[in-house]
Design a protein around this nucleic acid. Sequence first.
DNA 1: ATGATGTTTTAGCTTTTGCTTAAATACGCA
DNA 2: TGCGTATTTAAGCAAAAGCTAAAACATCAT
Lengths: 125, 125
Amino acid sequence: MKSTSCIRVFADTEHIQHCQTHLSHVEPVLQSLASLLALAGNEVRLKILFLLAQGQQLCVCDIADVLKMTVSAVSQHLRKLKDGGVLHAHKVGQTVFYVLSDRHLPILQPLLTGMSTTTTRQIAP
Amino acid sequence: MKSTSCIRVFADTEHIQHCQTHLSHVEPVLQSLASLLALAGNEVRLKILFLLAQGQQLCVCDIADVLKMTVSAVSQHLRKLKDGGVLHAHKVGQTVFYVLSDRHLPILQPLLTGMSTTTTRQIAP
DNA sequence: ATGATGTTTTAGCTTTTGCTTAAATACGCA
DNA sequence: TGCGTATTTAAGCAAAAGCTAAAACATCAT
């Protein structure tokens, strides 16, 4: 029976199968990488990550003030980031501080510091 | 007048303003980085990028076969990636081949080869 | 306890995303 | 020219994402 997909004259079936098995080996890695990148692929969340990458820890209020956003909206983004293991929270009194977690730092750090070399460094004299 | 956002007792206004200016300097970079990561932050598109990162060029049909997806669906993903400058197409006869473009490779390459060190390498003897 | 503050959660709504199906475009060949 | 192949585009739809507003928690101070 005819498949619905494209039937090329030069369809290299062997090559395609090789690609499929190759892909299947890295599938779980790609899957988790995709969800990590999806988290970082949102401007608001990327800004949050950038802020936290400056070394400081910030509370929800701080971030909301900096980004000029609702505390609620920020909190929801933080939740996603926390669920993704990108950051973790610790409570001091009634304020919750957020810090980048080590878990995905190897991937995130280069992304976040990569731009510092180009545009940051306005602070130092 | 009272702002709608959180008014902490210890709201370090100066620090917040510092964060804002710091952020404003990298804003355009963060914006384009976010859209790049949003492109890669989709499992299907990340798979496509991974396949293309193996050095080969692939046509829409190939990718559709490998991913077991509709040619149309793949084509729409490829369009997004092309619009984002991640890859470019060149036509040979009636088939369109896609290749990773150099433009965002510095950012993408480490992501895509990062996993090869863990799970790939099944090809070589 | 009571109230004020910092945060999270819920519900509702709009926008965006990703797919399917069908039609349109482009190219090669007889 | 006309048909088959490769790809793109358009329309429509269901699911997901992101925000607002309001309510619910949690913690501290009185």
